[in-house]
Write a protein that binds this DNA or RNA. Sequence first.
DNA 1: CGGCCTCGAGTTCC
DNA 2: CTCGAGGCCG
Length: 670
Amino acid sequence: MNGIPADERVRELRELIEQHNHRYYVLDDPELSDAEYDRLFDELRALEEAHPELTSADSPTQRVGAAPSERFRKLRHLQTMGSLEKATRSEELLKWAEDVRRRLDSEEPVAFVTEPKIDGSAISLVYENGSFVRGATRGDGEEGEDVSRNLRTIRSIPLAMRLAPGEEPPALLEVRGEIYLPLAGFGRLNEQLAAEGRKPSPNPRNAAAGSLRQLDSRITAARPLAIWVYGIGASEGLALETHWQALAWLREHGFRTNPGAERHESIESVIRACQEWERRRAELGYEIDGLVAKVDSYAQQAILGALHQRPRWARAFKWAPSTAQTTLREIHVRVGRTGALNPWAELEPVEVGGVTISTATLHNEEDINRKDIREGDTVIVQRAGDVIPQVVGPVLPYPARSEPFRMPARCPLCGAEIVRPEGEAMHRCPNRACPSRGLETLIHWVQAAMDIEGVGEKFVRKLWAAELLRSMPDLYRLRAEQLTELEGYGEISARNAIEGIEQSKQQPFFRVLFGLNIPYVGFVTAQALAYHFGSIERLAAVSQEEIQAVEGIGPVVAEAVAEWFADDENTQLVAELEGLGLRLELGEEERPIEGSLSGRVYVITGTLVRYSRAQVQAALEQLGAKVTDAVSAKTTAVIAGESPGSKLERARRLGVTILDEQGFEQLLLG
DNA sequence: CGGCCTCGAGTTCC
DNA sequence: CTCGAGGCCG
């Protein structure tokens, strides 16, 4: 090939490929396209095949794995891999810091470094003169299993250290790190296992550990394992003074260190970090179960020493687990206001992330069976996005199991035959007169749409059961005496409810429209329709084409609206509401406001100190601005208060302006 | 047609 | 909050 000697070209290719691996797997900033990379890789493999004498253990071609070996050798660590003392409360960290201070017995400052505590599999890598020679699992801390062949397949582990021109590598270096499986890779792995009819893996940590201990390293190579390197064990020819320096050194020499590492001047700052990271953990794309805090200075670490293999200079701060196991008692089905059937799990109550969970949604039949969840299973429950509980899947191995879940063929409330429209994930009860729909529509009306004070879901359910309530007009014909006859209703609460209902007649037109439960017409679309047509009379009279002319409304929504008004039952409902005095015309105050912030779009996240969320929204809308939920490239700015959510992170990534409370106030002043 | 961006809908707990 | 799907733009 172009006259270059094979050995030289092989060296060149290996360097190029490892350069790319580093940029792709360590820096996450690739330069080469996949096709270019593949070309280089194929060329190298061809050359090595043609010249077997050039093959070497640190060639990137060795990363694809090799045929099964008998078993793993035991390997003694050069320096013991200790375990960490745990802490779960901030007081324990304060006590630890006091202990550190007392033992050091000096006035010199103590700095700390915190790093995310990765939920994976701990390993030790040995480099001699800059080359990876072997690596082992943690084992009992003294001796682990030699999984070198498998480690070579992990692209973010450098086979050779990156050295500056003329730099001498340390003669010996033991690097400590955590092998883990990113959540995306975990999901793919389980899909693949399920497709092959094999048992899914219960969590990413087990999957990572299992993948690492495959006797056939080709299997390991096919799993998207990655590494975060967090420290140095034994070394020769290396002079570092602090852990923070060590992390920088590792990063410069091609190792993948976690970008979440932080240096702190005080224990209070460490405690703040522990709280902050608990909120950020959901955004990471891999599992962490806490933070590791270390005394930064090696000199101080040496004075502190260890107790029973546990260094006195480090602590593992662990959060309350955000997943837990419990028994799934029964799968129930609820019918929503649109007729959609929603399966939900009745669980043996269990504490997850500080709250007790007893129910969780199961979405739809497909989802349940993809996860292979069945009644009676022990399941893993997780609070996703910090709030809503999810059933992740069954715990293995299975006991004797019940049958896979089937959606009922008939509606549990009205007995109508259940349908599943083509291409949709949801099953539906097609009966428009199904009691569930009437009930759920009423709940939607009093809660979401009209926001009636003193009247909520419980009220509606009770009156429904007493047969005092079947439709929205019924609500406006209720008398206080009817309520006080019911158990649990005093004069005052009855009067409050009646008054709230009466007052809700003044709610603006678009809220009434929203409350009618027209398919695809939610809060925003109801406003658009109200502004555009001005009255229900006009809206009911216009053609589908005219509805479709409204911005943001396409053929699907327009058809649904036109169809709704073509139904006599619905127009009768509208007429009744009108007769009862509800507002079915656009009021002056409903018109969109033109102001200094017209055309601008804001997103609010976290809590401001001096204003509620509603106040912020109202103030912005007064000036003509729009307030939405999701951050996108079109967002003018994000207003971030304390403990902001994932929206802030997204705003940073998209380069959207971020305003704090002061910035928001300035905005109002113009 | 693909890729955003929005909206609708369902949901949990205290 | 998240998922799914409609609407719109390039």
